[in-house]
């Protein structure tokens, strides 16, 4: 009986776990992409807290660390595709910073899967939804490990 109850409690605890993801979305492409998902009424997990920034290049590594410190399970940085940056190369810089940041995060005990960088254009509402779903799934799997 107690084993059953424990099993049930475990299931409840697992069901209650919802990864919290902080998303930094660039104003010109990715935020518009998220909007596109909204206007097309595509359902997506409610795990993402979106912060709109003017450019992915504005996302200082400090912001990412602060998000993790305040309890984020994942941080997502979405940028324009290479060549599409409103400020020419902010997205390229953001990508390079992210690569370097991942290496430091690993030493600080934060796995790569918890900090993702990707490109979403203003028309890629579906891609936006797919990325969030993938990240939520991955974080859920990781939690079980």
């Amino acid at each position: 009986m107690t084993a059953l109850i424990r099993e049930k409690e475990k299931n409840v605890a697992q069901a209650a776990y919802q990864p919290r993801i902080v998303g930094f979305l660039c104003n010109w492409c990715s935020y518009a992409g998220a909007d596109k998902a909204g206007t097309a009424q595509i359902a997506y997990p409610a795990n993402l807290q979106i912060i709109r920034v003017m450019c992915s290049g504005r996302v200082e590594p400090q912001f990412v660390l602060q998000a993790f410190k305040q309890g984020a399970d994942g941080v997502l940085i979405l940028a324009c595709h290479p060549g599409d940056c409103h400020y020419k190369e902010g997205n390229l810089r953001a990508a390079q910073r992210h690569t370097l940041l991942l290496r430091v995060l690993e030493q600080l005990g934060i796995k790569r899967s918890r900090c993702r960088f990707d490109h979403v254009s203003a028309v890629e509402g579906e891609k936006f939804v797919r990325i969030i779903q993938e990240m939520v799934d991955e974080l859920n799997n990781k939690k079980g490990e």
């Binding site: 200082e60 400090q62 660390l65 810089r93 390079q96 370097l100 940041l101």
Partner: peptide
């Protein structure tokens, strides 16, 4: 005004890497 020296270095270096 900088809270995290390592993060500041990552930000700076990330902008000037030439792959």
């Amino acid at each position: 005004g900088v809270a995290d020296q390592g993060a500041a270095m990552i930000a700076a270096l990330g902008s000037i890497l030439d792959p």
